[in-house]
Every structure is written in structure tokens, then in C-alpha cells.
Design a protein around this nucleic acid. Structure first.
Lengths: 107, 107
DNA sequence: GTAATATATGAACATATATTCAGACGTTGC
DNA sequence: GCAACGTCTGAATATATGTTCATATATTAC
């Protein structure tokens, strides 16, 4: 076997992965965003005003949150006329959300 | 069927669950804590100074973080002499951590 | 007893973050 | 054209959060 580059820390996370992981979890770390994501967890897309009502926050606040979630590729946006419909991007997002729910319920 | 109490919002999260979920994810939302949890993810308990070295933060900072994680029952502490050994509390914690890793790697 | 070690604690500070507000932008209907 | 609508944006503000520093507590060794 060739000599390993960092023999002292075998399975540790590199700095990049740690930062990405923290960032991912941070996306779920706010009550309003949890309610937004929860509203999208049924797989049906919803526009901003629907999300605002479901999550009980202003439409402006929703818009701010969605920008972050969009940049992290956790949601996808579809523009139709003057409305923008959001949906969760991929199964991983739902899986992570449900895993968290599972912990809260019986953990 | 009996009439439902809140017919408008069928599967929404109650406020309590949303807050708990956000709090849970917030525990994973910091780079230092991610490295701490990562260091414990192999199942072996580690004392504060070992965690401090693994996560590259001061022992004081580790102590602060562990208090929060303890209060959330994400880690368990075992005192032995003047050392305190921490380990992840339950499989749910590891599962959630790995689920996040999974997303970061191929998401 | 004292000294050294391991961890915990609280205050102070700097930074990050969520929300609100006012306004801008693009789209639809008239 | 104009007005209404849905969404977005940026600045301002309040609050939350992580780290550091000094100190306290508890345990072991002498």
C-alpha cells in the first residue's frame, strides 16, 4: 500500500465538506423555513403568496427565504405569468426533512 | 366521518413540531459542531480535549457546544475522573448526520 | 494541605441572521 | 397608455449566535 497523506486523521471530514454540511443544515434551522418546506413536502408546487399564508410570514420574507433555498438548490422555481411556483428540488430534501421529523417524534 | 377541526390545513406541522425541528437542525448548522459530531460519528466516545483537537477549536468552545448538544439530548456525557467522555446519543443522530452527508456528496 | 489538570461557566464582543419597510420590477387586464 | 397584481430587492433594525478571555469548580498527584 502507498503511504497515506494524512495518517493521523483517517475518516475526518475535510473543511469543505464540513462547511457544506453546516450550510445545508442551516437551511433547515429556521422555523419559518421549516414551515415553508413542510408546505412543499407533499410534492405540490406553491406560489409565494400560498407559501406566505401556509408559513404565516409576509410575502417579502418568503421571497427572501426562497432566494437562499434556490441558491442552495433545495428548491426549484417555475415562473408562470406573474406568479412564481416553488417546489422542493429532489428527493434528498424531503428525505432529510422526514429524517428530522422522525427524530423529533420518536427520538 | 366526524367534521375535522381545521379542514383548511390538512397535513401542516403544528407550531411545536416546527420549532423543535428547526432547533434540531440548528444543532447541526455550525461548522465546529459538525466537526465535533463527525469526530463522534464512529461511535467511540471522546473527551473534551480530544474533541477540541479533532474539531480544531478551543476546549472552552467545545464545552459550550457540548452543553447545548447535551441539553438537546444529542450527546451523552460520561464522567471519569476529571475527564468527561462524550458520545452521540442514539442512532437517530448518526442517521441524520449521514443523511446530510449523502446530500452534500451526491445531491 | 498545595499544585496541576480537565472541564465548566459567565460576561463581553463581533458577526450572522430574520424580519420589516419602502420601493422597484415585470406581467396582466383594461 | 395606465392601474392592479405578484414577486423581488436593498437598507435598516433587532435579535441570535460563536468565540474568547478570565475565572470557577472538581479531581488527582504530591
Amino acid at each position: 500500500m502507498p503511504p497515506r497523506t494524512r495518517p493521523a486523521k483517517p475518516a475526518a471530514l475535510d473543511e469543505r465538506a464540513a462547511a457544506q454540511l453546516a450550510e445545508l443544515f442551516r437551511a433547515f434551522s429556521d422555523t419559518s423555513r421549516i414551515r415553508i418546506i413542510s408546505a412543499l413536502a407533499d410534492g405540490n408546487e406553491k406560489n409565494v403568496s400560498a407559501l406566505a399564508e401556509a408559513a404565516d410570514v409576509s410575502e417579502s420574507a418568503v421571497s427572501h427565504h426562497m432566494r437562499g433555498l434556490r441558491q442552495m438548490r433545495l428548491v426549484r422555481a417555475r415562473k408562470s405569468g406573474r406568479q412564481v411556483f416553488y417546489r422542493l428540488d429532489g428527493d434528498h430534501v424531503v428525505a432529510l426533512f422526514k429524517q428530522g421529523l422522525d427524530h423529533v417524534r420518536h427520538g
